[in-house]
Design a protein around this nucleic acid. Structure first.
Lengths: 217, 217
DNA sequence: GCCGAATTCTATAGATCAATAGATGGCATT
DNA sequence: AATGCCATCTATTGATCTATAGAATTCGGC
């Protein structure tokens, strides 16, 4: 429809990639708010103050835009996890660092991470599979650290590493959904609190829960 | 389009609510698979083997169908949590029972719970607010149990009850997304493993993580 | 075998939306 | 100040989808 052309400051030419990145930022924001199918290309154009058809100068299809958003949503996770896994340190220390490195993109690229988590299922087959492989590789890295921890006695022998990995990711990924809406929930606080919750539940040797469960009052 | 009329066994008249419930089951299944906006009413009709327009005998609009699905997706959570909270027992015991009661609907009504979790944002204002109130009341019940546990010394004094509640729900809700896809992940196993993870992370008095973190190998 | 209600079908209106094609205007460089 | 490219606009097409209206069919009960 209309696109308040009068108010739009004509963009001076920036680096060639710069404007393209603004377009994808807008797409990420809109997809995060309304979902991929719930958002129209018009919605994206409105954020930018340009006409709907102009978007097609930057991407070939709405699905291609989703792919770019999701790609930015996963990028970095695998790399920094691999770095942590390869570095020296106990499994406990690695888990703590994995938590921090998982939450950092949530602060830096909230919309991208949200879209990756909720909308990647709507990607066309090829890119969905590509991104699915990345996710699975990431999960495997985490699960590997847990298994190492079990093997060397840091973690309980009966820890179900697969379930613990899924629980770990479930807890941390939920954070991306309410980050920004929950007042005091900073990345630092979450890293600390979730680190304690998860690590204390994995580690060995403590009295049974039933025994400790008795309240003193 | 077409709706294989030859193959469809004409439904004999069942209880008045019975057929309506089958329609909503189909909607839940389709919404869970493709998302609310990604699913067409045609998709729902295809599952049932009837014509798209016939659905409107059962609901007034696609959004009304979503509302019915989401309502069935939340129902029971609040009631059984309230019952647990009101019953006698330690906070530890209550948390364990809250975990089990949260996961049970995931087995019984997987599609409904998934749709509630992922699609409720697309409900029209009024019903979204109604369902939002239910969710928040549920969260408050859980947070209340954690606070009680901190107050009576079962849980760490420095436990961030709000974050722990959100982490708790994040972990458990993620389960509904992969339940059925992860081979050995039964509700019982998950209750047990997630119970240990979360409770051990909340309870008091153990050596520092750093000290226990040293591997023996 | 007929009646009436429950259920499904047929036909279509009306809206929305992604995507294409080509025109237009500005800006940097010369 | 003329040129050429980058970015956006204008106009439109065709597909898809929700929803409505009313006709037709089924079935249980009589």
């Amino acid at each position: 429809m209309k696109a308040v052309a009068e108010l739009r400051p004509r963009r001076s030419r920036q680096g060639p990639r710069r404007r393209a990145s603004e377009i994808i930022d807008a797409a990420a924001q809109v997809f995060a708010e309304r979902g991929f199918h719930g958002a129209s290309t018009q919605d994206i154009a409105d954020v930018l103050g340009i006409w709907q058809a102009s978007l097609y100068y930057y991407f070939a299809s709405k699905e291609a835009a989703l792919e770019q958003v999701c790609t930015r949503g996963v990028e970095g996770f695998l790399e920094s996890a691999a770095e942590i896994v390869a570095s020296p340190g106990t499994a406990t220390e690695k888990v703590q660092r994995l938590i921090e490195s998982h939450l950092t993109p949530v602060r830096e690229r909230t919309a991208f991470v949200k879209v990756f988590l909720k909308e990647r299922q709507h990607l066309p087959d090829e890119s969905r599979r590509r991104i699915g492989r990345l996710s699975r590789a990431y999960e495997r890295l985490i699960e590997g650290v847990l298994k190492t921890g079990v093997a060397n006695g840091e973690f309980r022998a009966d820890l179900d590493c697969r379930l613990a990995t899924l629980g770990f990711l479930g807890m941390l990924n939920a954070a991306s959904m309410w980050y920004g809406k929950e007042g005091g929930a900073t990345i630092e606080r979450m890293s600390e609190e979730f680190g304690r919750l998860l690590l204390d539940g994995m580690q060995v040797s403590r009295p049974t829960r039933a025994a400790r469960g008795k309240p003193r009052a």
